[in-house]
Nucleic acid binder design. Sequence first.
DNA 1: TGCTCGATTACCT
DNA 2: GGTAATCGAGCAA
Length: 247
Amino acid sequence: MRTEDKTELLPREFFDRPSTEVAPDLLGCVLWYRSPAGLVAARLVEVEAYRGSIDPASHAFRGQTGRNAVMFGPPGHVYVYFSYGMHYCANLVCEQPGTGEAVLIRAGAVVDGAGLARRRRYGLPDADGDAAAPARNNNARQRDRDLARGPGRLCQALGIDRSLDGADVCAPGGPLGISPPRAFDQPDPVAAICTGPRVGITRAADRPWRFWLAGDSHVSGYKAIKPRGSTPKPVAGRETEDGTMHR
DNA sequence: TGCTCGATTACCT
DNA sequence: GGTAATCGAGCAA
């Protein structure tokens, strides 16, 4: 029996809420993608809510375009965009069509298909343990922690790219899905959810719409945005000393 | 049409 | 801790 056949999916109603409500509820859930190469699944440990037309940091803030059209569609679909010329980032669309709300998947812990994920991320042979290459395994523990630590890394580990833009995670039998923690025998995350400012944005950077599992080593580190170019502006309150995690 | 910058990451010092 | 890589979206002219 294939994994998605036996795996319970989150219902579409789950996503038919404001992204700030959906985001913390996604922690501990398992996002999985079965590509032709195989299945990789990751337990979500860090997410960010983007509130569409009322959120200056959201891609949807300026209205619908060709790139972000999926964000304005029905909930339960995936919006995938290309970032910094080299990374893909995945969002789950929330709320009613037209609102542009979404939750960015920032980090996860690979719970299934780790061999394939390692191959995608590091080009390593598909062998758990890989005893024939001790030199490569010196940092194996950190490497496994970093498999899906960060939005670009998570997409790379799962094999998610723009071809999946618009995919429905609520459709039974589809290649992409998201399941409640119990479907993958994952621990209940309810007791330890933290919130703080979102990562790497310049607008609305103060809104505490980032959610993560406290103490989880797979959470990506917080980085305040840095000015680009050769003429950095004088620093004036860009940093956040707000108790977010520093690892 | 051309320019700027970004919901990032890996690598170098 | 600093920065290069890399390219598409969005904006200005």
